[in-house]
Every structure is written in C-alpha cells, then in structure tokens.
Design a protein around this nucleic acid. Sequence first.
RNA 1: GGAGGGAUGGCAGAGUGGUCGAAUGCGGCGGUCUUGAAAACCGUUGAGGCUUCGCGGUCUCCGGGGGUUCGAAUCCCUCUCCCUCCGCCA
Length: 422
Amino acid sequence: MLDINFIRDHREVVKQGMINKGEKTADAVDLVIEKDEEWRKLVTEIGNLRAESNSRAKEIGKLMGQGKKEEAQQIINETGQTKEKVKELEQKLETIQKERDDLLYQIPNVPDQSVPVGHTEEDNEVISTWGEPNDEEWRLPHWEFAAEKRWLDFERGSKVAGAGFPFYVGKMARLQRALINFFLNEATDHGYTEIQAPYFVNEDSARGTGQIPDKEDMMYTVPRDGFFAIPTAEVPVTNFHRDEIFEMKDLPVYYTAYTPCWRREAGSYGADVRGLNRLHQFDKVELVKFVHPDESDKELESLREYAESLLQKLKLPFRTLLMCTGDMGFTQIKKYDLEVWSPGQKRWLEVSSCSNFGSFQARRMQIRFRNEKGKTEIMHTLNGSGLALPRVVASILETYQTESGDLIVPDVLVPYMGVEKI
RNA sequence: GGAGGGAUGGCAGAGUGGUCGAAUGCGGCGGUCUUGAAAACCGUUGAGGCUUCGCGGUCUCCGGGGGUUCGAAUCCCUCUCCCUCCGCCA
C-alpha cells in the first residue's frame, strides 16, 4: 500500500500510474483523500475529548490519594456524557478508517519513470537476448522426450494427487535436486543467506505480501488450521522480518530459499498447461532483498543480472523483458521477466520475475530501518526467482537432447549429476 | 491430546486499580577523566498517530481482541503464542 501522505501530495501522479496499470478509473485516489480528511478530523476530536477525561481522571486520582473523597466524587459526577460521546465517535472512526483503508488497498504502486506505458504483453520491451536457439526439426517437446524415458509421470500424478502434480522419476528427480543445489550454492556464493521457510503461512503473512485480499484464489488453503499453502517463498521469507526495525549498518540483507510452491491456477488451459509448462506444485529457488530506499533501483539491476547469470551458466538461450505498466502487477514499481527458449515447443517460457516493490510491501508489513537521523523509515523490498524449476527443466530437456535420444548434462550440473550424459 | 505456569521497553526483570510510558540492572548513544583505551562518574536512550512553519501540545500502544471503571500493565471474558509435566510420535 502507498503512503497516504504521498497520495495527498502526488495526487495526479498516483492517478496516472493507476490508469497506466490498466485500472478502469482512478476515482479511489480522490475518495481516499476525502476519507482521510474525515478520519483526521475525527481523530483530532476524539483526542481532545480523551485529553479532557484523562486530566479529570488524574485529578480524581490525586484527590483520592489525599483522601478527599467528596471532592473526587464531585468531579466524577461532572463527567457527564463524555464517555458515551467518545464511544460513539470511536465507532464512527472505525467505520471511516476501514473505508479509507479499503480504498488505500485498491490503489496500486506507482510505476517507475523508466517503465514503458502499455496495456498488453505486446508492449513489454525486450531489452536483451542471449544465446543462439537451436531449433532443429527433430527436437521433441519435453513431455514427449521424457515420456520415452519414463522420467515424468503425469498419469500417476493425476491418480495420486490431481492434474498438475507430476512425479519426477529416476534421473529426472536427480536433475531437480541438482538444479536446486546449483541454484542455492550460486546464491550463497553471491551473498544471499540461505533459509528454509515454512510451507504454510497464516493469514497475517498472506496479507503482508499482498496475496490477501485480491489474490486469495491463487492459494490452496487448510481451513481447519487457518493456513495457506505458500504460492512462492516470497511470502514466508519477506514476512520473516515483518514488524521489525533494521539498523542501517545491517543493510542490505539478502536471502535465498528453496521451497515448493502451490498455485491453484484456476482457469488455465491448453498449451499453457502441457507438460511442465504450468503446474499446481512446482519447485523454486527464490531471492529476496531488504534494502535502503536509495539503493533499490540499483539492487533491481543486480538482481536481474544475477538471475541472468544462472541461465548463462546453464547455457540456455533466453531473453529479458522489461514489463510494461499494464503487465506488471499491482505491487511493483518495476519488473523484469526472464524467458528461456523452449526449442521443442518453439516458444519462450517465463522462468524468473525480478521485481522492485519500493516501500509498498514493507509499509504493509511495517518493515523499517533507522536512518541517518535515527528516525525509522519504511525500507524497500525486492524479489526474484533464481530460478523456477519446471520450465528450466523443460528447456534443458529440449535444448540438451540429442538426435539419438540422449540427454547431455549441462556442464555446471555434471558435479551434481555425477555423469555427463543420461 | 491432558494438567499446570507464563507473555511488560534492545535484553533481563519489578510493578496487582489512581501523579505509570512504566522502577532497577545490562546493553546502546553523548559527555567528564585519559596520550589513547578500559574502569569510574554524569546525562541520555521505545513505536506510532493527530496538530504546528517550528518550539511545543495531545492521543494510542505493557502478546491480540472484547469488557468492568471517573480511571486498567494491574480486575473479568476470549484468542494466540511460549514454558513445564504426562501421553503420542518422524
């Protein structure tokens, strides 16, 4: 959520940002400012009334201490309806505050100046392409290639759990494990602290990173215990520092975490969900940064470059997109997507998304730091995938297959796989 | 799952209805002393809101929520979490 003071001072900028992100109207901006004015007026009024009754209570206390019961009783008699009045105003305040906050939650983060304005994925900007796609005719889509080897078992996955919950068998399970280890080792070598996080979170955490209220439907739930299965490690890892205050000398803070991710993906169909393209459960190594507000622009670039380096080391051709305003989501200031080439399908697959949230997430979670002047200030958060496994696996299966039906192991994974070819 | 105990400032730990946003100790910061440091001594040190150009004023917060009262850290209800014992268990 945005700072209400920022909205008040930059009304037009916020409105424009909202329109650019594809919202139909920006009326919420004017409404929230109105509500906030009402709210502030009430807060002042209540404050004054409370000051009055506080001083009266103190006076009574003093008199009681001196044993002057009659005088105290006299003041008690004078209190009149202040109490009822305060109660009434408090109820009103609660209503108005809820209305104000509901509006506040409807206003998206303001895109950075450098983000192209646009409404569809056509408007995303390809900022770089790396590697030479190898598009020979004999290359099979990964699900066909893996089926012959019995490496991926979608049928049994469906039997045991449901569509979108495949089994990885034999060498494929090993490849998954190899990639997870490779990604975690690379990240820790680059200054990220590895953490293992809970796979379920409570409602406060889901709210903290913004899955609630608007993206509630994406998560699996455990109603009996009030849990949400994490759709990404971003949720537990960012909430790790919820309601905390950092010292400036401790910044920046980087984390990496491997977790499974669960997504309901309601409404997906067709080629999108063939093979490993889109699953209900998948593995991902996530990267999360907590940084000083002045540094977040720079930190986004280094995050993107780091994620790119992983694909380069795996020698998988990919391209990097700067997402346009309409395609970047509610909470982001700026976002890059990395798409790996899938030669068997002749299409690009998203394997990483690197985002700068500015103070938007941190404000909701009250993650702060003590600045130069010793004042607390909301910090900036970023995150990115480094990387999401299934599509990387898909691309490896298609890029590294040979015409004779073998799979060459990418050089960097050989130490983890123990063999050069499977 | 059963029984009991607890949750107070960065940490430890007092406070059981009134001048308590909260003793004391440790830690942190500033100073005196010192060539420098340590020790000692003095001072200072929670977060957030409203208001103000500023000084300041004022409100809220003692795990969360609700209640009693003129007044709640303190009493009542409820939830969550932690600890101890028993049971179960990868």
